[in-house]
């Protein structure tokens, strides 16, 4: 996959960990999914139909998911800014360090393009870091999508393509999980008056 495209996908993931506004974060993840879809399309010619499936999968993630998340965001307005545990620069620095560490420490996965391997692992790590560092529930949901995009980047780069059954099955699972997570975000707002997951710390032993 084109190096510029992969870099843009990574930068958009890093933007998601640092931006304050939920709408900007949704747009960043949506654009990331679209770029990933475009990248998958460039791999289609003369290759397995699995790539076409992957592109369709990513288009759904790039258009439908962000639209639904935007609607969810409109229904769950925050009464005040959710105070972050760490500032944007600290979050960015921590995430970049973790992603670099993950990418460097990961042994060769066997793909022809080592950069794609490293970018995919970095995206997975960034997704995990978004969940760890961001307190709003909607941001944590976006973290899951970023991690999933890392796996999609790797999947479309498998020689001969990953089976379309796995691609479509993973999409269905993602849609199910995101739908349930969206419903939870809505419910958390109703119950707590905010999407701040710091409120979800009542269960202790």
């Amino acid at each position: 996959m084109n190096g510029v495209l992969v870099s843009a996908i990574l930068l958009l993931a890093l933007a998601t960990v640092s931006v304050r506004r939920r709408s900007v974060a949704i747009a960043a993840v949506g654009l990331q999914s679209l770029l990933l879809g475009a990248g998958a399309l460039t791999l289609v010619s003369g290759r397995s139909s699995g790539y076409l499936v992957a592109s369709a999968v990513l288009a759904v993630k790039g258009v439908v998911a962000p639209a639904l998340l935007y609607a969810l965001m409109r229904q769950t307005r925050e009464p005040r800014l959710v105070i972050a545990a760490h500032g944007p620069l600290v979050r960015l620095a921590l995430t970049t360090a973790a992603a670099l560490l993950g990418a460097v420490l990961t042994p060769s996965l066997g793909l022809a393009d080592r950069h794609v391997e490293r970018a995919a692992v970095a995206l997975l790590v960034i997704g995990i870091m978004i969940v760890v560092l961001r307190r709003p529930a909607l941001h944590q949901l976006l973290g899951l999508l970023v991690a999933e995009n890392g796996l999609s980047l790797l999947a479309v780069s498998v020689p001969g393509g990953l089976s379309y059954v796995v691609e479509l099955g993973a999409l269905l699972d993602l849609v199910l999980v995101a739908t349930v997570a969206g419903a939870f975000v809505h419910r958390i707002h109703l119950e707590f008056g905010t999407g701040d997951t710091e409120q979800l710390r009542g269960l202790r032993d």
């Binding site: 796996l151 997570a181 979800l200």
Partner: peptide, 19 residues
Amino acid sequence: RGALEAGWKYLVLTTLGLS
């Protein structure tokens, strides 16, 4: 509230793990 907390944790942690 407890159930929401448990459900959210379960969903997020297991989804990340399965990734």
